[in-house]
């Protein structure tokens, strides 16, 4: 998950270094305005906690084990600003002390894991929570947040790799599939951890307790989720870029081209990412992109709607009783 140096090309890592310095700087500024003296040790101990929590692994199968990344957990428990700072501190220590992740690539790693991951996790968590007040909704919200934060992080990292000239067709589906699975582990651990914390510290629970639920406005939700969906769609788009890509060439060489044409093995990809029956390459790619966005958004909206619907029912029942 942590990118070493030189994997990305200079244009990509330098841009991300600049972006990360700016964004983390903004988070420091925003967070410090509300900081009390005892918040500094709080955040440091929490960063150490995230570092240690990433060591808590569990065996999955075949010697592979899963573990937490923790960006969504940090954001849900401590708020988005502190979560950004905490994840940044973890990544810098991992790079400088443990050589996990490169130094020039630090901006990329911070961008992916300390900015995209907690922001997406928090956005999804807050949006779902705002629409749902059922008994299990915080858990559902946290699971979706954690899961999507991992997938979005992988998508962003995939885009960075493609921008650095890697063969998209070979890596993006692999990375995304792998992280769709890893994300489930992240979601499970995050929810189990939150359940224990909310039980031990009821004042931190979002609905019954006094903890301020994340204040995410409707516009932020919609724009944010659209952005997440677009990034996912963008990550998938090179899959079917019209020029014959490496894998297809390999397939062609091996005489497999025919099978390929009939049986797209890549998930989520429209055939060559162009829409049948639409003239013009650019227009057709654009429409394909929009469809991709919708494909990601619709299941998400469905889940949110299902939970909201449950809430509406409850209210109606309550009114009937009254």
């Amino acid at each position: 998950m942590h990118m070493p140096d030189r994997v990305l090309t200079p244009e990509v890592w330098a841009t991300l270094d600049v972006a990360s310095v700016g964004l983390v700087g903004g988070a420091v500024y925003k967070t410090r305005q509300r900081l009390e003296p005892r918040d500094a040790p709080l955040m440091a101990v929490m960063a150490a906690f995230i570092f240690a929590a990433q060591m808590v692994n569990f065996p999955v199968a075949l010697g592979v084990s899963g573990h937490l990344i923790g960006a969504t957990l940090a954001a849900v428990l401590l708020g988005i600003g502190p979560a950004v700072l905490i994840m940044t501190a973890v990544l810098v220590i991992q790079a400088l002390v443990f050589q996990d992740g490169g130094l020039m690539a630090l901006g990329a790693n911070v961008f992916n894991l300390a900015l995209v991951a907690p922001v997406v996790g928090y956005l999804v968590y807050g949006t779902v929570l705002r629409h749902a007040r059922g008994p299990a909704s915080p858990q559902v919200a946290a699971f979706l947040g954690a899961w999507l934060s991992v997938v979005a992080t992988a998508a962003v990292a995939g885009i960075q790799l493609v921008l650095s000239g890697y063969a998209a067709i070979a890596i993006i589906p692999g990375i995304l599939l792998w992280h769709l699975a890893i994300g489930i582990g992240e979601g499970l651990i995050t929810v189990a951890a939150l359940q224990l914390v909310w039980k031990a510290k009821p004042e931190m629970a979002p609905i019954s307790g006094e903890a301020e639920p994340p204040r995410i406005g409707r516009t932020t939700s919609v724009v944010g989720l659209l952005a997440v969906a677009s990034v996912l769609a963008l990550a998938l788009s090179p899959l079917a870029s019209p020029s014959p890509d490496g894998l297809e060439r390999v397939a062609h060489d091996a005489g497999l081209a025919e099978e390929f044409e009939h049986e797209p093995i890549l998930p989520g990809a429209l055939p060559d990412y162009t829409t049948p029956g639409v003239e013009g390459e650019a227009a057709s790619t654009a429409i394909a992109g929009v469809i991709g966005v919708l494909l990601v958004l619709i299941p998400l909206a469905a889940v949110v709607w299902l939970i909201t619907w449950g809430k509406g029912q409850e209210e109606e029942t309550a009114q009937d009783a009254a």
């Binding site: 003296p37 005892r38 500094a40 040790p41 709080l42 440091a44 101990v45 929490m46 150490a48 906690f49 240690a52 929590a53 808590v56 692994n57 569990f58 065996p59 999955v60 899963g66 573990h67 937490l68 923790g70 957990l73 428990l77 582990g185 499970l188 651990i189 995050t190 929810v191 189990a192 951890a193 939150l194 359940q195 224990l196 914390v197 031990a200 510290k201």
Partner: peptide, 29 residues
């Protein structure tokens, strides 16, 4: 269940860390 156990451990570690953070904060203040 293994994931759930790991999650509970993480949660427990968080609660203990929060308490430690409070004590460290006190010692610094």
């Amino acid at each position: 269940d293994r994931a759930r156990v790991a999650g509970s451990m993480v949660g427990y570690l968080f609660v203990r860390s929060l308490q430690r953070a409070e004590r460290v904060g006190h010692a610094m203040e």
